[in-house]
Nucleic acid binder design. Structure first.
Lengths: 352, 352
DNA sequence: CTGAAAGCGCTTACAG
DNA sequence: CTGAAAGCGCTTACAG
């Protein structure tokens, strides 16, 4: 059907080896021969078959991206960063999502097997065990925001801890002493780290540990709404709320509006993630920014390094810094309403 | 390195042909043999190499998705629908984006060549010519929201015309007579169709064609903002604004707020797309909903039909209906604030 | 029910 | 600088 190398070779009166060399920019081809092959190839509209190529080179020139989900801007931004980087390196991107259960992840790992030269894996529910059991030992992997400890894998994650820490410090700096946190999903890694940052900032400020005000939430808008009912019932009432993500902050904002509690006048409110909607609510939402597409860029860059420089590559656990976005909802003076970096000092440098 | 079929065959004391048959659920294998092969395969953790497989079957079990962009919810929703469908059929999804220029599209088409069994192409800037020139005649293709005329390709698009028509009819039904449109990018297909719907509804209502109030825009928030300046300068002032997309509607809303013009009290405002932010602005935005992930589902379903039933497959141009989402910004009575279908009668049924 | 063999479209030492 | 040949890991008529 499609024209093959053999046909090009025949018409250009050379061997397939020579055609192959021409298409691989080998320098062991005579100028004249090269031209002749090019011409014929162009005429026939020959495009090398990547499958044949892959079989002999044992490369696929593709990498896989495993995602738990595909809802919302977070994942599309990761994909955007990944796609961009992959294209720069003339690689391809294979995407597979909806892997929230262990069995699905295992199936997905199997399916990627042999189709990609490396894998970026983002999934909250995975352990090193499962990974090792389902991946060829030699397949390079970068873990994205996965709670896998140790240094057996390259990993890349967001500095949830410092982001939360920096945000709470910001509230403290503006005089808040009773700061409530609306927590995320209990066993979620991001949620745990953000909570840890909150606790550290509070206790470091000399506030008693028993004064930590922790309200449950599950990252949903509804849970933020509900949490406010609890918070408004406390006495003395907290003067600030740190929601573990923006969705909950927005839910909280609705509840506060309905309860006729002024934000930030009577209570300050801040979130985490910097989702676009934060710019549209009134007051605009102070939050922690995460450069998500960069997360994708870095992960793929790191992975391709592992793929191409297998020998010199050494594994690292990288933590990407976050940024505070000061808008209206925290009530801090206008002149401070600019971006500045959250304390992100413990980010490990990547060395590729 | 990785264990191959040969190794499995050797250990199970059968030929590779038999191993192959076992893995392809062929029924010409004895039960006993089958078991033995399974056991050995399991032991060795054998996974068939898809590249070898592809080379002999001439299938890749993958389809490609070509996107112009990767910004925002629209594309992530398309991807979500596509990924979901692809997985159901045990196919793989190859993604490639940022194809806005002709040369990039051509390069992308070349790169997909041989890697996929079919292609879903979404790009505003493409003509049938370029497509034919860069695609193997035999490769199934589904065009997504592409302005390619004729029936040479399967295509799938949103019913922009009827959506706009229905929305403007809604405004007319509520007594509006001077309805301005903020247009989208001039040569953009969606924009053209929405404009066409607006014009049809207006003129059908017996309003003079010279009373069409068309203001330029480019789909950006900023252009919506600017358009309002023009609109407020008109006399008599329009009583309603139909923005060709939600982003512009939101820009317009900001401008109206600043100009202290009540929405919907003094002027009604509606958009198109139903982006999530529309729920958060005040007043909430009346708009036209497009089930985007379904667009991805339908396109892939159609494509896989073309891939697998090459013979029985006939090409169709499908138009997916839209829905009106009535919220606060159009000012219509509360009891009507529910979803109902926009006139979507001219959607062609897909027959796979 | 099973195997030997050819073939899918490339690449790459090896020899010249 | 060029070609003949082996090999990458599968599948599938063909023969038995």
């Amino acid at each position: 059907m499609a024209v093959t190398m053999k046909e090009v070779a025949r018409r250009a009166r050379v061997s397939t080896a020579t055609v192959s060399r021409v298409f691989n920019d080998s320098n062991l081809v005579g100028e004249e021969t090269r031209e002749r092959v090019w011409t014929v190839a162009k005429e026939l509209r020959y495009v090398p078959n990547p499958v044949g190529r892959s079989l002999s080179t044992r490369r696929t020139d593709a990498i896989g991206l495993l995602l738990p989900d595909l809802y919302g801007e977070f994942f599309s931004e990761v994909i955007r960063g990944a796609d961009q980087t992959v294209q720069q390196h003339r690689y391809h991107l294979l995407i597979s999502s909806s892997h929230n259960e262990r069995s699905e992840i295992e199936a997905a790992l199997q399916m990627m097997h042999g189709r990609v030269d490396g894998l970026v894996i983002m999934t909250p529910h995975i352990d090193a065990q499962t990974l090792h059991a389902n991946l060829p030992k030699s397949l390079p992997v970068v873990l994205l925001n996965c709670p896998v400890a140790g240094n057996a894998f390259d990993s890349m994650s967001i500095d949830n801890y410092s982001g939360a820490y920096g945000m709470v410090r910001h509230l403290l700096a503006h005089g808040h002493r009773r700061i409530a946190i609306i927590k995320g999903i209990e066993r979620n890694y991001d949620a745990i780290e953000r909570l840890r940052g909150y606790r550290a900032a509070i206790t470091e400020a000399g506030i008693q540990a028993e004064d930590l005000i922790e309200v449950s939430g599950d990252f949903s808008e509804a849970s933020g709404y509900k949490a406010v009912e609890t918070i408004l019932g406390l006495s003395p009432r907290p003067s600030a709320i740190f929601a573990s993500n923006d969705s909950m902050a927005i839910g909280a904002l609705s509840a506060l509006k309905i309860a006729k509690v002024q934000v930030p006048g009577e209570i300050a409110l801040v979130g985490f993630d910097n989702i676009p909607v934060g710019n549209y609510v009134k007051p605009t939402l102070t939050t922690v920014n995460v450069d998500i597409s960069n997360l994708g860029v870095q992960a793929v860059t790191r992975l391709l390094h592992a793929v191409r420089e297998k020998n010199s590559h050494t594994k690292h656990q990288v933590i990407l810094p976050t940024t505070l976005i000061i808008r209206e909802s925290c009530g801090c003076p206008v002149e401070e309403r600019s971006q500045y970096s959250a304390k992100g000092g413990d980010a490990t440098a990547s060395n590729n």
